[in-house]
Write a protein that binds this DNA or RNA. Structure first.
Lengths: 268, 268
DNA sequence: TTTGAAGTCGAACGATGTTCTAGCACGTAT
DNA sequence: ATACGTGCTAGAACATCGTTCGACTTCAAA
């Protein structure tokens, strides 16, 4: 049989930190022809790796998602990333959708929401929103994951807790705090949804400069018949130089400003 | 991969007006038994139907999407709806993504944006937003379609034109009008994204009463350890009775109110 | 040594998007 | 009338997908 005396295998229980799954994996298998008489399991069935934890699967899945996008995401690719077969994943994650749930939770956990400072609550809400936007943009197609899912994992409720802490510390009444928290999440999600992929210095394989898209939109709108689209043709220039970052700040200003007014009205 | 909106390859000729595609489709085929001697192509290869226009395909696709959702949407199901094979669709639409582009455009066309009345521009913007929300909610999973796509079809730019007309008639400066228009679309999209499916009297096959979900969320938050989640446990009650419609109106109020202030500041 | 649970994975099933290719119906030129 | 090209249909096939099944190995307890 495959005697290959492997090194000591880590304890299958206990989630040890697994910084780099499948990095130093030996690539050579056993090229020797199978013996003619006995059907020996030459490329055997089990136990030949470090034992494939759920965290390692999630990490690999996130890697595949960042690299290939949601359309290129498949269980077989995730398994390939871990040097195993797709069937092996199902013991740990149950389904592709379940795995994507875990990936989503993992990404949400990257958010850093500041500790509440009552004097600066308005700015802190904006900081939280900016952090959320950056997190979403850091990983490809994460917005598409967030649609059907109500985030309820430990990382998600930690974000909820800390965001609500800022709002309540600022004097926002409870029901208004909940409403505006939910609204903030939706609104940031919606904004980043319409931003095309990566915008900052991060660039995918196909560079898509944002201002070039804007220029194409401008040209298209200017080419429309003015008698049928008088407004579009006139404001076409404003479409070209519409800065995403500035628009996001405008959104935050509108949101926080109106929220602060309502909080102070109802507060005292 | 190829996700672009490349539809018609060799458009044969101008799109002839096809008022009602696929409405009164006759269902009967040819139930008579095949003659015994000659091998007649009874259900042969071609030419036996009303000739399968692109509009009919889009209508059938929308029907399938409403019924089965985006996950249940497949070219074979659309073809089945038209009593044909999946391969036949590709002559007209190019790809599944291209077909979904057309469906999205079709749905956008359902929006009714009012004619501009300068005295009521703020209320009219809200009306446009409400119409958009209703349109999105009327069709299942339409939000998920809107993600990668920049709507640029004739119906989409008609909506843009009419919305911009309202804003500019109200005295909003051009660049601010463009910014707030883009923002409005994102924000409404984002809001409806987080609403679970159908909310109004419209109910899918699986009734999902919204307040029951809220009650479950409340119970879950109340069960959390208070020393770790002091805010979540305290405001849990506010989660239960969070009305979607009221929250949407709050969003519109925040948006339009801040917009009007900026318009009047910069206006004169 | 025996037993049972935990975990792995090749093989296979059904469904998917898309392409290939053979074929039909019909208008036009010969 | 015959031939032909073109617009259009549709069966078959290919590669890939999510998921299941069952045989298998390993490990710890009995």
């Amino acid at each position: 049989m495959a005697g290959e005396a492997h090194n000591q295998k880590t304890n299958p229980r206990g989630p040890d930190g697994h910084p780099e799954p499948g990095d130093g994996a030996d690539l050579e298998r056993e090229p020797l022809p199978s013996p003619p008489f006995q059907r020996v399991p030459e490329r055997g069935t089990a136990r030949r790796r470090d034992p494939l934890t759920r965290e390692a699967i999630v990490a690999a899945a996130l890697k595949v998602l960042d690299r290939d996008g949601l359309d290129g995401f498949s269980m077989r690719r995730v398994a390939e990333e871990l040097d195993t077969g797709a069937a092996s994943l199902y013991w740990h994650v149950g389904s592709k959708d379940g795995l994507l749930d875990l990936v989503f939770e993992e990404v949400i956990g990257e958010n850093e929401i500041p500790d509440p400072d009552p004097e600066r609550w308005q700015e802190q809400i904006k900081e939280a929103a900016r952090a959320l936007r950056q997190t979403i943009q850091r990983h490809r197609d994460i917005v598409r994951l967030s649609i059907g899912r109500i985030p309820m994992g430990p990382n998600a409720i930690r974000v909820s807790e800390r965001t609500l802490a800022i709002l309540r510390a600022g004097g926002v009444p409870d029901d208004l705090a909940v409403q505006s928290y939910l609204l903030l999440m939706s609104v940031v999600n919606g904004f980043t949804m319409d931003e095309g992929g990566f915008t900052e210095e991060e660039q995918g394989p196909e560079a898509r400069p944002a201002d070039e898209v804007g220029r194409m939109v401008q040209q298209y709108f200017e080419s429309l018949p003015p008698e049928q689209f008088p407004n579009l043709t006139e404001v076409a220039g404003s479409f070209a130089m519409s800065d995403q970052g500035a628009r996001f700040e405008l959104l935050l200003d509108l949101f926080v400003e109106g929220l602060a007014r309502r909080a102070s009205e109802r507060g005292s």
